[in-house]
Amino acid sequence: MARTKGYPEALEKKLRDQRYIREDSNPEFTKNVKAISRTIAHMCYQCGTCTGSCPSAPRSSYRIRKFMRRAVLGLENEALTDPDLWLCTTCYSCSDRCPRDIIPTDVIMSMRNLAFKRDIVPVNFLKTVQAIYASGHGVPNNDVNRAAREKLGLTRDPPTTHMYPEYMPGIRKIIDHYKLKAEADRIVKEREG
């Protein structure tokens, strides 16, 4: 029994009917994506310029074109539960070149918003939230950095919240307004106990 561990499940998954059916499509999803992203997500004609421009695609399974297709078809569940959603680096290369003048990056951002409402979000993103709440930086300064800055004749800390911590309450106020920190804390706790 132990020797076949995983095989029956894998086989079952392979043999499952993978066709998508009308019920998989939620027209509201297309509308919501459009409303949040403020771009014409429904106008994609699948030319592939976005994926061809994407620095993430050659090194990952992330396919921006696939998410655009899901936006057109309203395949909400498929889009929001795909972990690839979080692999976009938001470089905006696709948005620069899209011949239909869509901003695919903003489509991804809107889908991340919708996923977050369902608590679908990788923990590292939440830890970034916590880091910003604590220091004002997603990637706070560290000693290696400080030494490098000193070498270059710069101040040990950059002229940001690191140098002016008095601005932190303002940043926290914004984050609290959207309950972002509270939600992040809750989800991290649920995941990591």
Partner: peptide, 11 residues
């Protein structure tokens, strides 16, 4: 550089 959209792979 493009996406072979039928193969679903960047090229």
């Amino acid at each position: 550089m493009t996406d072979d959209t039928l193969l679903d792979r960047p090229i």
